[in-house]
Write a protein that binds this DNA or RNA. Sequence first.
DNA 1: CCTGTAATACTACAACTGTAACAGAAGCGC
DNA 2: GCGCTTCTGTTACAGTTGTAGTATTACAGG
Lengths: 129, 129
Amino acid sequence: MAKTDLTPLQLSVMRSLWKRKEASVTEVHADLVASHQLVPTTVATLLRRLEERGLVDHRAEGRQFIFRALVEEERATRSMVAEFSERLFGGDVPRLVSHLLKEHELNPGDLDRIRDIIAAHESGEGKSS
Amino acid sequence: MAKTDLTPLQLSVMRSLWKRKEASVTEVHADLVASHQLVPTTVATLLRRLEERGLVDHRAEGRQFIFRALVEEERATRSMVAEFSERLFGGDVPRLVSHLLKEHELNPGDLDRIRDIIAAHESGEGKSS
DNA sequence: CCTGTAATACTACAACTGTAACAGAAGCGC
DNA sequence: GCGCTTCTGTTACAGTTGTAGTATTACAGG
């Protein structure tokens, strides 16, 4: 399992690949140009480096390379969140949640939403013991 | 306000400063040696670079430099969490919370804890409308 | 005073990242 | 068939980070 530690730019590239199932350099470039000002060769380099790291894969189709993500978005997100919560909160997820609730703006609707999620979580899980 | 974007190692250094209110290179080194295998000059370099970035400050005391964090831990944590939630969830904190609840192991006690926090949060705030 | 020791300052270097120029190959239009 | 355009492959370079060696300074003890 390759290290899923993505910089913002790398994440943007991956997002492009996740959105389209497969994409050529040109397509990824098209997606990135909106947010970042990059020439296509730069995007090609980024993709190649991600491939070196085993996060991406490509096949040739005519003269083009069609890239594809090798990690699912879910998995990558999970891994990054885990890494982050480990780094900042020693893996103490409730403490992170608590921090989020206390320190970051949430409107009442958000709280309701979260409470619902908790309820769903409780009923569906953790009744083994 | 200096960019509070800390790598794990940098964070360790800052943690040392936060724990002790002030610290010499030697003291920070003592704290880091447990987790990271570093010689004192390395620690000095790290501190100097953090100072360049405006996150740290020092004064001379005899021949020693006494370092001090210029950002509070709270603030730094907040800022890093915000940055992270922005990057991964477009700043949608409830979505991040939801992700945490769904994807990361929480035992029932944790859920209770979180529910209490929500309750406390609701009663103390957001009753304007 | 002189020297050792301890502390900082300066310099270095490899890895990774953002960013891109240049070179070569391969279709497309004529 | 030949050149233009479009892709990719290769190479480069500056900035940041992890990591540390070397030079220098300054106090402590004799």
